[in-house]
Simulated assay, not measured.
Amino acid sequence: MKAIEYLKFSEVNPHKFLPILNGYKTRKHLIEHEIFTLKTVTEWMHSKIEVDKEAGCRVRAIIVDDELAGWCGIQQECGKYEIAIVIDDQFWGVGRVVFQDLMRWARELNHDEVLVNFHHTRPIYKFLEKISEDIYESKIYGSKFTTYKIKLK
């Protein structure tokens, strides 16, 4: 089992996020955006630090065996709480553990439900189908997503 830990963004060097956020396989499954520079990744990280301060939200860097693997969080999108997980392709196998940790966090934060928004380029996930109250298509920032609505209470 790989050792997984979560760090606040303020504890991570922005240089380490650049190859993850600019990686082809990662970008393929996200809203289209410009390639990150050190300046824009630093700005993005500061925006996530601010999200982390909001009630009901938690945003963390994912560290696997002492290496930055990506980021995850519970954040507000369109007035609802969503779970976000972005992991570099070399670490995709840890996604399920990260998801379980996020669900635990959502319960700790007393959320009644959370959404998981996966870009339309991603396949339907059977394990999410099983635990979702509803699955529907949504548009966020002009991109199409499959949204899984998961009740927690």
Rank of each mutant, 00 (worst) to 15 (best):
R60C: 05
M45I: 07
G70H: 03
W44R: 13
T42P: 00
E54C: 09
A55G: 00
G70L: 05
A55P: 00
A69H: 07
D66F: 15
D66T: 12
V64I: 10
W71S: 11
D66I: 11
D65I: 08
V51F: 10
D52L: 03
R60V: 01
V64Y: 06
G56H: 02
E43L: 15
D65Q: 06
E67M: 11
D52Y: 01
W44V: 10
L68D: 10
V64R: 01
D65F: 11
G56R: 02
W71Y: 15
C72G: 03
C57Q: 08
E54R: 14
V51A: 14
V59P: 00
G56T: 05
W71E: 12
C57K: 05
G70T: 03
V64K: 02
A55T: 01
V51S: 13
K48D: 07
G70Y: 03
A55M: 07
I62H: 04
E67I: 14
W44L: 13
T42W: 09
G56N: 03
W44I: 13
W44H: 12
C72H: 03
K48H: 12
R60M: 03
L68G: 04
E54K: 14
T42R: 13
I62L: 03
L68E: 11
K48S: 09
M45Q: 14
R58Y: 07
D66Q: 15
R58Q: 12
D52G: 07
V41D: 08
A61D: 06
V51M: 14
I63P: 05
C72V: 01
E67L: 12
C72Y: 05
A55K: 11
G70W: 02
R58T: 04
V59N: 06
A69L: 06
A55Q: 08
E43W: 05
D66A: 10
D65G: 09
C72Q: 06
I63Q: 03
D66G: 00
C57Y: 02
W44K: 12
G56V: 08
A61E: 05
T42V: 04
W44T: 09
E50A: 13
T42G: 08
K53C: 11
T42H: 09
I62M: 04
V51T: 13
A61R: 02
C72S: 12
V59S: 10
A55W: 00
V41N: 07
V59C: 11
V41G: 12
E43K: 14
D65A: 04
M45A: 15
S47K: 15
C72M: 14
A61I: 00
M45S: 13
D65K: 04
D52V: 06
V64S: 02
I63G: 06
W71T: 06
G56W: 02
G56I: 08
C57N: 11
D52Q: 05
A61W: 00
V59D: 02
E67F: 11
H46A: 14
V59H: 04
A69Y: 07
E54P: 01
A55N: 07
E50Q: 13
L68T: 07
A69E: 10
D52P: 02
H46L: 13
K53D: 08
D52H: 11
A69T: 09
K53N: 13
V64W: 08
E54T: 04
V59R: 05
K48L: 12
G56Q: 03
E54I: 01
I62W: 02
C72R: 03
S47I: 03
C72T: 07
V41M: 07
I62Y: 04
C72A: 13
E50D: 12
